[in-house]
Nucleic acid binder design. Structure first.
Length: 184
DNA sequence: CACCAGATCTTCT
DNA sequence: GAAGATCTGGTGG
């Protein structure tokens, strides 16, 4: 991902990010699950306009938006077009496994980064990263290594706009927080 | 595996 | 003062 690529609709960026490698201080892996949120979306923190918490969502694209979830967890978003962002929900861990295991207090690689709170904990993300530029340290990026099969489905944990298919997955990945719903 | 309660706190109404 | 873009550990099939 080039920094300029973030200045597009969140759903476009969310799909394009699948398969890229994200590292924070050299720790991370391949992005396998994302969700998009934008200004016109009732489920988005930005829906009601700028506030103290969501200020980063209305700042320049290509930066981080970090918020506290349920008073317990940090969640990492990547800011796109003004008022929109992509929530990182899961990685396939590939770098700094020992660091992630220590931060998470468990071994199972499938559970190290499967979920927004878990991912942020494994990467050492907290409020100090809010507003940080994504094209310099501690962040580093790598392109997909081959063809990427992206699947789209509904988002998780929301009550408004629950039917909007803005959750993107690396098809078949065992590292997602929840599998693609069964079709029939 | 499914369901549920509890933890914990910032933000906005 | 209520509501969360969640996670974990418990219980019961």
């Amino acid at each position: 991902m080039d920094i300029a690529d973030f200045d597009r609709p969140a759903a476009t960026v969310a799909a394009a990010l699948i398969g890229h490698v994200l590292l924070v201080e050299g720790v991370g892996g391949t992005i396998v699950e994302t969700e998009a949120y934008d200004r016109t979306d009732p489920a988005s923190h930005s829906f009601a306009g700028p506030t103290r918490r969501n200020a980063s969502m209305f700042g320049p694209p290509g930066r981080a938006y970090v918020y506290r979830s349920y008073g317990l967890h940090w969640c990492l978003n990547l800011v796109c077009e003004s008022g929109s962002a992509v929530l990182l929900r899961a990685l396939a861990p590939s770098a700094g496994l020992d660091t992630m295991r220590a931060r998470r207090g468990l071994d199972d690689p499938r559970r190290l980064c499967a979920g927004p709170g878990r991912l942020a904990q494994a990467l050492g993300i907290d409020a100090s990263h809010d507003g940080a530029a994504l094209d310099r340290a501690p962040f580093a990026w790598g392109p997909p290594e081959g063809p990427v099969a992206v699947a789209a489905t509904t988002r998780i944990g929301i009550t408004k706009a629950a039917e909007t298919p803005w959750r993107f997955l690396l098809a078949g990945s065992p590292y997602v927080s929840r599998p693609l719903p069964r079709t029939r």
